[in-house]
Design a protein around this nucleic acid. Structure first.
Length: 456
RNA sequence: GGCUCGAUGGCAGAGUGGUGAUGCAGGGGACUGCAAAUCCCCGUACCUCGGUUCAAUUCCGGGUCGAGCCUCCA
């Protein structure tokens, strides 16, 4: 398997440090509001990678954190007059709901920062003891100059960066590039007792501490959105490497590309944030998932209505083939080698998807029961690696029944009437019924097994 | 301004130093009462200018355009 490593800027052969225990850490959300579609991309992409790894290795440990202490959460809690735990619990639950709808499997670990504060404090103490961090005015800062490798991951030269820095430099910093590991809390802010007084962790240290606790000092794969490369991952790497006596922190750094809305970055200030829970009202989660896998994970992906509609039509074809195959014998057949080869080439989902459609074309043509059974099994198996095609075709074609949609009973009644009209050779009436259903979002097809319908 | 990445047919989107993935849309045919679904056939696609090469969409350099990071961000 080959994976593109941000650190080297190249595809590298993936060689786990221990084939009996693959470790992967992906940066999860800060739970202060609902997830938008951009948040869903890394969750889906790394879910596919985890599924693939689980096919290849006996034991994969995948951790994705939930950051539940953060100033944005504090602000939301203060605004509502509730504990931060209330805010965090609410949006963590919403996050889980969104991911479940997108077919994202639960991770092996889902650490929360509030549950790992002692480990965070311990790591900061080690960084101070080794001379990589210093305390000042209730803060603890990481001293960037003490880590020669700083900037390697995000390909930045620290001095150049600081020359053009627009950030106001806090007076307690020795160097403008130093970043906070621990900061003091006022009495009304959430805080924990520490050797530096009551305070809370800075933004980057939690991932270092939790990855170490759950997965060890050196992990195989670290993933996240490309925007996290700097400063978050650069800082994480600096902390971890220095806390571990120079050991490699993450052996492969993977970053997914950004999602744009009509070619523009999704951001609150632009007002073009699209929430997953909103999209789910208009589209099946599986279509959203497929839309996210349509492009290669490192490429930017433009999100628009057309992309989603396109994904729906693709699933119509995929599930249509499964439907038309009829009842087939059970088969142990697995996805074809070309499918796995595509995914093992840096998670090339578009190429893998193309293999799915190759299977479909062959399946639609096949007359041989044994071949059909094999192809159906191959299709389902390939789908399971991508997290697709796990419903029945009936479930898929009945999707999208909102409250105001026509009920199945009404559809069935209309079908009976149409059948009667056709039997009486009253085609005008039969076509009228079909057209009527079409305007109500239901498409009728006549097959050799009788009438069938699906929601558009 | 610095850095990173990209530019493929009507749209989306892989890939490759020399036989035009895949899906949608579109055209023709088969099937159908008519459709739909399905099957078969159909596209002189690789931003631009130079260079390397027997051969470049693919490698190298310049340009133009686009996205992102440098500040919270997936």
């Amino acid at each position: 398997m080959q994976l593109h490593n941000t650190l080297s800027g190249q595809k590298e052969v993936f060689v786990p440090q221990n084939p009996d225990r693959i470790t992967m850490y992906v940066c999860g959300p800060t739970v202060y509001s609902f997830a938008h579609i951009g948040n869903a991309r890394p969750a889906v992409v790394f879910d596919v990678l985890a599924r693939l790894l689980r096919r290849r290795y006996p034991h994969v440990e995948y951790a994705r954190n939930i950051t539940d202490i953060d100033d944005k959460i504090n602000a939301a809690a203060a605004k509502e007059g509730v504990e931060i735990g209330v805010i965090a619990a609410r949006y963590a639950a919403a996050y889980h709901e969104d991911l479940a709808a997108l077919g994202v499997a639960p991770t092996d670990h889902e650490p929360r920062v509030t549950e790992h504060v002692p480990e965070i404090i311990a790591m900061i103490e080690r960084l101070i003891a080794s001379g990589h961090a210093y305390a000042a005015e209730g803060h603890v800062l990481f001293e960037v100059k003490r880590y020669a490798g700083y900037g390697e991951l995000s390909k930045r030269d620290l001095r150049e960066m600081l020359a053009g820095a627009r950030v106001e430099v806090a007076p307690y910093k020795k160097d403008p590039g130093d970043f906070v590991l621990w900061k003091p809390s006022t009495p009304d802010q959430p805080g924990w007792e520490s050797p530096w007084g009551r305070g809370r962790p800075g933004w980057h240290i939690e991932c270092s501490a939790m990855a170490e606790t759950l997965l060890g000092e050196t992990i195989d794969i670290h993933g996240g959105g490309i925007d996290l490369a700097f400063p978050h991952h650069e800082n994480e790497r600096a902390q971890s490497v220095c806390a571990h006596g120079g050991k490699v922190f993450a052996r492969y750094w993977l970053h997914n590309g950004f999602l744009t809305m009509d070619s523009e970055k999704m951001s609150k200030s632009l007002g073009n944030v699209l929430l997953v829970k909103e999209i789910r009202k208009h589209a099946p989660g599986e279509a959203i998932r497929l839309a996210l896998l349509t492009g290669h994970y490192r490429q930017p992906l433009d999100w628009n209505d057309e992309a989603l509609a396109d994904a729906k039509r693709k699933l119509d074809r995929l599930y249509g083939a499964l439907r038309d195959a009829g009842d087939v014998a059970a088969s142990e057949a697995q996805a074809p080698a070309a499918f796995f080869a595509a995914l093992e080439d840096d998670i090339n989902t578009p190429a893998a998807l193309a293999e799915l459609f190759e299977i479909v074309r062959t399946l639609n043509k096949s007359e041989d029961p044994a071949e059909k059974a094999r192809l159906v099994a191959e299709l389902r198996d390939a789908g399971s690696v991508l997290g697709l095609l796990q419903q029945t075709h009936q479930q898929w074609f009945a999707h999208g029944a909102n409250d105001d949609a026509i009920s199945e009973a009404e559809i069935e009644a209309a079908l009976v009437a149409r059948l009667a009209a056709k039997a009486a050779k009253n085609y005008a009436e039969g076509d009228r019924i079909r057209d009527d259903l079409k305007t109500r979002g239901v498409l009728i097809e006549d097959s050799k097994d009788g009438q069938r319908w699906r929601r558009a």
